[in-house]
Amino acid sequence: MGSVRTNRYSIVSSEEDGMKLATMAVANGFGNGKSKVHTRQQCRSRFVKKDGHCNVQFINVGEKGQRYLADIFTTCVDIRWRWMLVIFCLAFVLSWLFFGCVFWLIALLHGDLDTDYKDDDDKSKVSKACVSEVNSFTAAFLFSIETQTTIGYGFRCVTDECPIAVFMVVFQSIVGCIIDAFIIGAVMAKMAKPKKRNETLVFSHNAVIAMRDGKLCLMWRVGNLRKSHLVEAHVRAQLLKSRITSEGEYIPLDQIDINVGFDSGIDRIFLVSPITIVHEIDEDSPLYDLSKQDIDNADFEIVVILEGMVEATAMTTQCRSSYLANEILWGHRYEPVLFEEKHYYKVDYSRFHKTYEVPNTPLCSARDLAEKKYILSNANSFCYENEVALTSKEEEEDSENGVPESTSTDSPPGIDLHNQASVPLEPRPLRRESEIGSRR
């Protein structure tokens, strides 16, 4: 089982795998120059863009038009607004034209077009017409509009002379109601789609790998820009990579689940303020055997998904993003964004995407760390350097704002901070800030 798991979770494809794949392509008759073999020097295209759209195009789909027309309502909801407006206008105009032609044909076959009612006051002739005051196609078209929109100006009306005319008036009224219901329903469904809710759900630009509770963890940050909550919010993550099976089958995008606390339930989050999602790199993680150097040379993509129900409509929305291997910062942490004021908490989104480097973060893999092949620094050293990194950030910001350097908390000259780390230190809580992250 261990060997199978290692093969499945191998992220960085070796040169031997690339040569094996190329040999397979030639042997199977696919070596026509169009096949692409992804190596370390040639990274694959992003499968999920940063804005959440999937970078996929469908080609050679059989009976595409028929399949889309069979699900016309979903098609109308998914198309762009400009095409929705075109369909909206065409549906009414074509129905008016169709029934206008029908009423014109009825008048033509009944002989109503030969009668001039402007110079004739004989009401008996008017009563013999199928539709009064309809003696041309324009008049028939206007009567069709008046019937379907129930305008009723009063000059044109159907008589009991022709039952077919009466039937067409009733039929057009029913068709008009159906068109109204369909168009209004599609427009309302399109307006109520929770897709735009994703514009106020954000992911951090970069993911980070750092120590948390004595273990290497992959972390990324999510935030909600609205005050309205995302009900039943939960997160998922998958690692996408290519691999070759033991039988020699090439899988271009193998999807591997990344555990973010599904078993323990901590994948469900209360997204009021930005939260750091934590994936513990343990023996079940696809990143277990990867060191910093392996991450730098790897070719994979981590897709992160945030799902929840919109509070206003109770409709489920899904926000997506992805991180390539070069977008994962090893040995970094996110800057705090949640600050405790006197009577409330304040979230500073200008710090949302910012990170700071944490010294002495192990550069080895989580496996080597678990097997004690890498000796961690003293816990006080880690905490102290973590505090120094934050303090230096604040000093830089104070210097930019014009604060005198004498007010900063610099260490005395001639003292090495790293050498001082081995000395037991008193706890130094942050002056006014605390970061709330997901705790395992």
Rank of each mutant, 00 (worst) to 15 (best):
S3V: 03
N7P: 10
Y9S: 15
Y9R: 13
I11G: 15
I11N: 13
I11L: 05
I11F: 12
V12T: 15
V12Y: 07
S13F: 03
S13C: 09
S13H: 06
S14N: 07
E15W: 03
T23C: 06
T23R: 07
T23M: 03
M24Q: 14
M24K: 11
A25H: 14
A27V: 10
N28E: 15
N28S: 13
N28G: 13
G29W: 02
F30S: 08
H38Y: 05
F47H: 08
V48H: 03
K50S: 06
D51E: 14
H53V: 08
H53M: 08
Q57V: 06
V61M: 04
Q66S: 12
R67H: 05
L69D: 08
D71K: 14
F73H: 15
T74H: 12
T74Y: 10
T75W: 08
T75Y: 05
C76G: 14
D78Y: 05
W81P: 02
W83C: 03
I87K: 15
F88Q: 06
L90Y: 03
A91M: 12
F92V: 14
V102Y: 01
L105D: 01
L105R: 02
L105Y: 04
I106G: 01
I106V: 05
A107C: 12
A107R: 00
G111C: 02
Y117H: 01
D122H: 00
S124C: 05
K128S: 10
K128L: 15
A129F: 12
A140T: 01
F143L: 05
T147A: 03
Q148A: 04
Q148P: 05
F155Y: 05
F155K: 05
C157S: 10
V158M: 07
T159R: 02
D160S: 09
C162E: 01
A165D: 02
F167K: 00
V169F: 06
V170G: 03
F171P: 00
V175M: 11
G176K: 04
I179L: 10
A181H: 11
F182C: 05
I184A: 04
A186Y: 03
V187N: 06
M188P: 07
K193D: 13
K195H: 04
K195S: 07
K196A: 09
K196S: 10
R197H: 11
R197P: 07
R197Y: 13
E199T: 10
E199L: 09
E199K: 10
E199Y: 10
L201H: 07
V202Q: 11
N206L: 01
N206W: 04
D213R: 15
L216T: 01
L216D: 00
L218Y: 01
M219N: 01
N224C: 07
S228D: 11
S228W: 13
H229C: 11
L230R: 06
V231Q: 08
V231D: 08
H234P: 01
H234Y: 03
H234A: 10
R236Y: 08
R236H: 05
R236T: 10
A237Q: 00
Q238C: 08
L240D: 00
S242L: 14
G248I: 02
E249N: 12
E249T: 12
Y250M: 15
P252V: 14
D254C: 09
D254K: 11
D254T: 04
D254W: 07
I256G: 07
V260Y: 01
V260K: 02
G261A: 06
S264A: 11
I266Y: 13
D267E: 04
D267V: 03
R268H: 14
R268G: 05
R268Y: 09
L271A: 04
P274F: 05
T276H: 07
I277H: 01
V278A: 04
H279Y: 01
I281W: 01
L287F: 09
Y288I: 01
D289F: 04
K292R: 12
D294C: 05
I295D: 00
D296Y: 07
N297I: 07
F300C: 02
E301N: 01
I302W: 00
V303S: 04
I305N: 09
I305V: 12
M309N: 10
M309Y: 14
A312Y: 10
T316W: 13
T316Y: 11
A325Q: 06
I328H: 02
W330A: 00
P336H: 15
L338I: 14
H343E: 15
Y344I: 04
Y345G: 02
Y345K: 13
V347T: 13
V347D: 00
Y349W: 05
S350C: 09
R351D: 04
K354M: 12
V358W: 06
P359V: 09
N360H: 14
N360I: 03
S365A: 05
R367Y: 01
R367L: 02
K373I: 10
S377A: 12
N378M: 07
N380S: 12
E387I: 02
V388G: 15
V388E: 14
A389T: 09
L390N: 15
S392N: 14
K393W: 05
E394W: 03
E394I: 07
S399Q: 09
P404N: 13
S406M: 13
T407C: 11
S408K: 12
P412Q: 10
P412C: 13
G414K: 07
I415N: 13
H418V: 14
H418S: 09
V423E: 15
P424V: 13
L425P: 13
E426P: 07
P429Y: 07
P429W: 10
R431M: 13
E433Y: 07
S434W: 09
E435K: 03
